[in-house]
Design a protein around this nucleic acid. Structure first.
Lengths: 355, 355
DNA sequence: CTGTTAGCGCCTTCAA
DNA sequence: TTGAAGGCGCTAACAG
């Protein structure tokens, strides 16, 4: 790899001059500039970001930690974050925590060692050490949490309007005539799961329906375990709910498998609504009514906030962004009490304004 | 951010000693080591990789460029590559080219500037400048191409056994009794698309069936355009093929939409097989018979080759790895001439040994 | 075993 | 407008 020195030598100028034409920091006379540019081309010179970063102590790099980027929700977030970062001249390092708090800690360390200027974090589901995040912030590296917002200390966050979104889904089921609705959630240690549960409860209460504890099915994020739980509770037709609301994709896949194993069909045997798209396309059946999160926008917005924090290092640590973006309801077959022709296109219902 | 100097000062030792305990490069007496470790904890010290890299000229970082990581095939590759890299102490920077050759060029430059030690590349679909890749290799940065292998110059590559995989899919359709099979491909400027076409042709020829040019439907990678093309050619029941073989996911989604628009069902109206999984789960119908690529393994294997090249900088540039991994056929409903009960589990057929 | 020091490639004063 | 030189944080070679 050629260095700035070699370029300077070939162009017959000093390294300072080369630096100036590379960075456009100081005007350089046209003939020297031309010579330098020619030398850069000839040598296929690429400025060494490592050296530049060491000198300027700015890497123009952001990090993002997601639990698992093979789950379709997360790549969308990453794309959004990457795009927003790029328009500001930043690049993005994306890594997977595999839902492991230890791994997450290592990655946080790694990103700090890499000198990223800020970190976007989708927390691992298992409880993480309380100070894992705050230590990073204390070190002066801004952190924005996405989707799963940790409680207990102030941190910027961008997520979906969980409560309203769950309420919207539940309201929809109620409007379709379903009364006995069970909610299938992931670990209630996660704040967003708790908030979605809360939206579900609010909706039922407003409809004058009692919330029954045995209609709150708490599981984990592994589909097989979820499927077993659902099979268990769906077997008996007498105690079976008339509809299911799932709070995330893995949960929904598990629940659907449970339904399938019990030979139950949607919507004829049971109504079904879930957070997050389960298929890539509307072409597949059962066409599942879905509460769609604006994943790309969540990523964008989080990047923007992070970059703002980086620009303004002395912000008030208690003056926190808590951005909640509205979800959208895509009504499909799985929640239509009167089954229609399959493959009917989804009706898209934007979330109503916050009450 | 504390520096090694501050740690040394707090521990009352020299920077060299701190460096030694951090890197374990040289034995350090227990009492000094303890003091240093305490200082590291107190200061929450994280070694500056940027400075280390500048000194050692090793970043222990790999880059991977994919067209779009919201396409489920690519995150799997990335996960595989990341895992393999990590076991060797390397981290991975993943970026999206959005199928744009220009953007890909920029990203190649960016990764070089970041001083990655090697690059994994899934080429953009549009034709890229011939020297874009070779210049990187000339600069001494090894490149391994994945999935889409460029022609015209020697470069390590890992991809699926395209020809055999397409042949396997076509053979399967033939075995099911389909005779008039059309192939729906992406741009034939891509080598893997050409090879898949070749597999299709081989299979037909071996079965004594003439390959008809108007059964080769070349499209692009945008589903809407594909759908329009398929609608066009499926409308007329007289000229309609009896089965479709799609060579990738976006193509298949487009073709399926075309079928849907023509009110054609699978497999009753037309047989259907495609490369790449279209849904996250077997629960959805139509259950599509799929040629599954070992995406995770492709990523792993590519990382391993790249790391080998990095370890051995003086390899023979004409002694190239061309690894082709076998695909697997998941037989589902869409190719069963006699329609069975929906939701029947997939039969998994591993690819037979190469003839 | 421990301390000292040069220098990795670059940017940025500062002088000319 | 251009050139010279210091130093970012760290490692590695060397001296002690």
């Amino acid at each position: 790899m050629p260095t700035i020195k070699q370029v300077a030598a070939l162009a017959g100028v000093s390294v300072g001059t080369v630096s100036h034409v590379v960075n456009g920091s100081v005007p350089v006379s046209p003939d020297l500039r031309l010579k330098v540019e020619a030398a850069i081309r000839d040598l296929d010179y690429h400025p060494n970001h490592v050296a530049r970063s060491l000198k300027t102590s700015r890497t123009r790099t952001l990090g993002i930690i997601v639990p698992d980027m093979t789950i379709s929700f997360f790549p969308q977030i990453i794309r959004g974050a990457e795009t927003a970062a790029r328009t500001r001249g930043y690049s993005l390092i994306a890594v997977n925590s595999t839902e492991s708090p230890e791994r997450q800690g290592e990655l946080l360390s790694l990103l700090r060692s890499q000198q990223v200027e800020g970190i976007l974090l989708v927390n691992a589901a298992a409880p993480t050490p309380a100070d894992q995040i705050s230590r990073v912030i204390d070190a002066g590296i801004p952190v924005v949490c996405l989707d799963r917002v940790p409680g207990g200390f102030p941190v910027d966050s961008v997520s979906v309007e969980d409560i309203d979104a769950a309420e919207m889904g539940t309201d929809h089921l109620l409007a379709q005539g379903y009364r006995d609705i069970a909610i299938v959630t992931g670990p209630l240690s996660l704040q967003n799961e708790r908030r979605r549960l809360q939206g579900y409860e609010q909706s039922l209460k407003r409809a004058g329906i009692a919330v029954s504890p045995d209609r709150i099915w708490q599981g984990n994020l592994r589909s097989e375990a979820l499927a077993a739980m659902c099979r268990d509770r769906l077997e008996n037709p007498v105690t079976r709910p008339s509809a299911l609301l799932c709070t995330n994709g893995p949960t929904a896949l598990g629940a659907l498998r449970g339904l399938h194993d019990c030979c139950l069909r949607t919507p004829s045997d049971i109504g079904f609504v879930t957070f997050d798209e389960l298929t890539l396309d509307d072409l597949f059946t059962p066409a599942i009514t879905t509460i769609v999160q604006p994943a790309y926008d969540i990523g964008c917005r989080a990047s923007e906030i992070l970059l703002e924090r980086i620009d303004q290092p002395e912000w008030d640590r208690n003056d926190i962004y808590t951005v909640r973006l509205p979800a959208t309801l895509k009504v499909r077959d799985s929640s239509r009490k009167v089954a229609r022709r399959e493959g009917r296109p989804a009706e898209v219902v934007p979330m109503r304004a916050k009450r």
